[in-house]
Structure formats: C-alpha cells, structure tokens
Design a protein around this nucleic acid. Structure first.
Length: 420
RNA sequence: GUGGACGUAGCUCAAUCGGCAGAGCACCUGACUGUGGCUCAGGUGGUUGUGGGUUCGAGUCCCAUCGUCCACCCCA
C-alpha cells in the first residue's frame, strides 16, 4: 500500500523551506519592531470556541470545520481561524493582568484547517501569520495593525497590495441598519440568488458580500452602512481614516466587505493582490470589540489581522520573485583510496566539531565524480585526500568558486577551513 | 457544495484514425588512469494516477475512483 497525502494539504519540501523561513523571519522581525509578542496556542480547541464566536451561520462553521470527538467524548476542532484561540488564551492566562487599560499585543504563525474544495491558493491546511492587539479601542491601533501588515507585504516584495476598508458598525447601529436593509431589499427578494434569499432571513448583512451580478445590481441601490453608523462608530471610523492619512496609507472604501466571521465590529479590511486569479485576498482582519466578553472575559476591545502565507508565496512566484541560488557553503572531504577514506572520516568529524558544515560522498567514487558532487551540491570547498597528501602530511583545499587550490598542513586544516 | 479541463520517465512535454511508449532537461559512466562547471559519446530510468469494461490490440474509446487545476462559492 502506497500512501498519498490527504487532499488539499501540502508537503513543504527542503527546496521550498527557505522561502518559508524567509517569510516567517521577516514577519517575526516586524512584529518585534512593533512590539508584538509571539503566542502559540494548541492546534485544536473545544468546538464551541469556534461555533459561538465565528457564527453558526458562517460557512466556516456550517461546512468547513475539522471537528472530531476524542476518547473522552469531547468535541474538538482543529484551529479554524486564528483570533478566537488567541483571545481564549488571553483570557485564560490573564495576559492583561491588573491594568484594565493595558494594550496586549500578540502575534502568531500557525496552521489553519478548513474543509473546502481545494484550488490553487486554497488548501485544507494553510498557514496564517497574524496579530491581535487586545485592550484598546483607539482607532490608531487599527491603523497600526494595518501598517504592520503592509510593511510585511513590502518586505516580501509585494508592491501592488490594495487595502480595502469598511466599517460594519456595532451592536448599537448594526441592528437598525439590518432593518433598513431588509426593508430596502424586501421588494426584490425574489430577484436575489437562492443563497441570498436564505441570507435575507438569517444573516442579511452577508447579502452585501454576494458577487452574483443580479444581487450586486440590487445591493448597489441600497443604503450603505457606512452612512448609517452610530456616533461612536462614525467617530472611530473617522479616527482610523485620519490615522491612515498620517501614515500615508492609501485605501479604497468597499462597502461590500462584511467578512465571514460574525465577531467583527467597526473596522473591517482586506488586502488584495492582483495576479493571483480568484484567490486574490492575501490577508484580512478587523476589530472585534465584543469578542473577549463573549468568550467569558471582561469587556475588552481588540483588533487584528491574518495573512495567508501560501498566497503571499504564490504572489511572489507570480511576480517572478523566487529565491536565487543559495550561496555556496560547507566542505566536501574527498578521498582517493581506502587509507585516505579513513582519514577523510576523521577530518570530517573534526570539521563538524569545529562548527563547520562538512560531508563525505559515501558512494566512494572517482575524484572526478566527487568534484561533480561537490559542485552540484553547492559546497564552497573540496578537501582532497590522496596518497601524496597522506605521505606529505598535508591536504589540498580546492575553492569550488574559483578553482584555486591550496596545500595546507593536515594539522592546520581545520583552522584554515574555519576561516575559508 | 455546483460546473468544467487535465493526469505519460525525477522535471517539462510528444505519441496521427485504436497499431512497437518517445524527446529535451536532470541523473550515472566515460572521453580526461588525481580535478567540478563547457563540449562530445554511451547508459539508467515507465504497472501511461488507480480499478474495471469494449477490442485481435487501449496512453488513446467507455464507466468508476483518486488527484491536480480553472470558474463559481467561500476565504487567507
């Protein structure tokens, strides 16, 4: 029986790991600069954490979760998104401490699991790099997380990233808007797509997100939530826009951004990158002022985003930004006969003990083949050990970049190669 | 979850109407008996995704299944 990887999941192979580490390192460095601290939460959580926060009506909960029962009969779910687990850990470990005004800034890089039909840029396991800033309702914090995300895209060489911005209001203004929306749509319900007719009853806001041309025509006529925000939400949105202007960040107002997670309040945003086909959203987030309380904590506002790393890497590829050849490094110790082979094993070990990358060609082939091996494997140097060298107590060091060779006393070999 | 395209060597792809499974790259060996990259010569490599069916004969036609991709949907 030959096993294959399950549908929609990927192996990250040695040749690809470099670009992942590059992205992760860049994200970590930026987070540190903005003073976000890393948090690592479990790969599964109690199912209720997701169903109650993301929303029973969301696609994620209705059909995309990896849910299973453990031997104790508890319903668990693989991490379906990044915010709820972070908020859960924030509350459970009392990360805010006694200072109720303190802003706790956290980041994570973690796999996310959703059962969806796979496609390029859409997988059943993908990875998100995200931040959560919990404890402040200041719109300057919304601007800070957006600024951080954009800094990451820039660091990754993605130039044409568009910020799409909206406000989805709060429990004080959204219900009134929903009534207005339903009233405005009421006469056209028959013309909406079947999904939207469903949404009309259960989650009318999502109709604004529908991309069906027929629905689009109708929703364009309808009043915008942005024009009906309560004073608090309007002031917050104006504050965010002002802060973005201060930072020189451009944005496009997009009333269609509702986002598929129910906990969002006020700010909602999305980052879009051209050239990725249908899966062109490379990140998104928003504010969730009711989430901490909903998860059993003290009422505490928060804002954050998640960035899809697979899509960032795909975008780099589409732009031709793939990694170049890695720099040559390390030493191949080549042996020409059995006596030299024994010495080669010893020298390799000494080099490794000295912290130098070193290896042997265990196939015991001709010098020609060993040099070919050293070349294709990207070694910086080859040490040649043969009859002559053993007799003279020396080694020959060949620079694989230039082809220059140097005879070095066997006793000085490790030191010479340390400074190579 | 809906509709569609495509699965042939490690990689990229050929194979006419159903008639001997091929090329380039890569890899191995040699030309060069102790010197890589360039060149040249030779060579290894395949259950044509998998399982059935039709046929004298299937990579090719039919059915199923798995996978990848595209659009929708959704999202990152």
């Amino acid at each position: 029986m030959r096993y294959r990887r399950p549908r929609g999941v990927n192996d990250i192979l040695p040749d690809e790991v470099g670009q992942w580490q590059r992205a992760e390192t860049a994200f970590r460095r930026l987070c540190k600069r903005y003073r976000y601290r890393e948090i690592r939460t479990p790969v599964f959580e109690q199912t209720g954490l997701f169903t109650r926060t993301v929303g029973e009506e969301s696609d994620i909960v209705r059909k995309e979760m990896y849910t299973f029962e453990d031997k104790g009969g508890h319903s668990l779910t693989l991490r379906a998104e990044g915010t709820a687990p972070t908020v859960r850990a924030f509350i459970e470990n009392n990360l805010q401490g006694q200072d109720r005004e303190r802003l706790v800034k956290l980041y994570y890089i973690a796999p996310i699991f959703r059962y969806d039909r796979p496609q390029a840029g859409r997988y059943r396991q993908h990875h998100q790099a995200g931040v959560e800033a919990i404890g402040s309702s200041n719109p300057a914090v919304d601007a800070e997380v957006i600024d951080l995300a954009l800094a990451f895209y820039q660091e990754m060489g993605l130039e044409d990233v568009q910020l799409r911005l909206n406000s989805v209001g709060c429990p004080k203004c959204t219900p009134a808007y929903v009534e207005t929306l339903k009233a405005a749509l009421g006469a056209h319900v028959e013309e909406l797509c079947p999904d939207c007719q469903r949404r009309y009853e259960r989650n009318p806001l999502r109709i604004l997100d529908c991309k069906q041309p027929a629905c689009r025509r109708i929703t364009e006529q309808v009043p915008k939530l942005l024009d009906m925000l309560c004073d608090e939400c309007r002031e917050h949105f104006e504050g965010l826009v002002a802060a973005l202007d201060l930072l020189g960040i451009e944005y496009v107002l997009d009333p269609h951004i509702v986002r598929g997670l129910d906990y969002y309040t006020k700010t909602a945003f999305e980052f879009v990158c051209k050239g990725l086909g249908a899966q062109d959203s490379i990140g998104g987030g928003g504010r969730y002022d009711g989430l901490v309380e909903q998860c059993g904590g003290e009422p505490t506002p928060g804002v954050g985003f998640g960035i899809g790393l697979e899509r960032v890497l795909l975008a780099r590829k589409a732009l031709g930004l793939e990694e170049g050849e890695p720099a040559r490094e390390g030493v191949l110790v080549a042996a020409l006969n059995d006596e030299a082979w024994a010495e080669a094993i010893k020298l390799t070990s000494e080099l490794r003990d000295a912290g130098i990358i070193a290896d042997l060609d265990y196939r015991r082939r001709s010098l020609r083949s060993q040099l070919r091996f050293a070349n294709s494997e990207g070694f910086a140097a080859t040490v040649i050990l043969g009859e002559d060298e053993l007799a003279k107590g020396v080694v020959v060091v060949r620079n694989m970049q230039t082809g220059e060779q140097q005879q070095v006393a066997r006793t000085d070999a490790v030191e010479y190669l340390r400074n190579f």
